[in-house]
Amino acid sequence: MSSIANSLDVRAKEPGLFRRLLRSRSGAVGILLITFYLVVGLLGALGLTPFPPTEQHPERLQEPDSTYIMGTDLHGRDIASRIMDGATNSLRVALLSVALAGTAGTLIGTFSGYVGGLLDNVIMRIMDVFFAFPAILLALLVVVVLGPGLTNTTLAIAIVYMPIFARVARGPALAVREMEFVTAARCIGIPHWRILLLHVLPNTLAPLIVQVSLALSWSLLTEAGLSFLGLGTRPPQASWGVMLSESRGISEIAPWLMIYPGLAIMLGVLGFNLLGDGLRDTLDPRLRGRR
């Protein structure tokens, strides 16, 4: 009896996910970077940028100084304001596309793993079709079919990453469907959709949480890549990819055009990568201390 009480006591002292995450070095730095990124994006969304992001000033290719802290571009637009506006746009694309990909992919993957058999095989082969393309090329194809712009970029990125979520969710679903509590639920006549949503789905969440963080970093990169090629966010709207692309050919005389958007992309991606590492270490005790 006392051992049970002791174990309960230990459980009660086990800190929550967020606290554990903060204790891991990667998790803490990741959260810090993402918070910074969110704040910048939010300020951009609220229009609280130093200057309107598309406003053209007479000072073209101005070096960073006290007025324009990151300098101005070829059209005299303030780089800092455009970085903030770019943060809003890339965050919007990243969050929406991962939400879409995550929801659709998880539902498909859990359903596939739960039903098993031929249907599972067919669904997974269809997912394999998407894996046989380099991500950027598949996104390109979708964008060309749908037309460029923020919404279509979001959809394209969602389609590209959806199969990854399906694969990640399917594994645990396959394992869970053989467990006794699922058999028991089936025996007492609980409908399949309910078993799927209430019993199978929650058990696939741990690996999915890690995946969400990594997918956010990939979708940031893909959005920047598409915009760099001129197929994502369209000018004059700001995007870090567009800004980098615009710096080509003139970065020799105005390196700040390349440095700041480049740093912004790197820090954003780094933040989500570190958070993903931290989450993996925290959620999977076998990995603690390995990375």
């Binding site: 890549g225 980098l244 020799e252 390349m258 480049g262 992309i265 820090l267 991606v269 990568n273």
Partner: peptide
Amino acid sequence: ALIGLAAPNFLIGTLIIYVLSV
């Protein structure tokens, strides 16, 4: 490794061209 994973290849490419030319 962290920097390598976070830096998109179009940034590295642009940087290489910058360093070479400047």
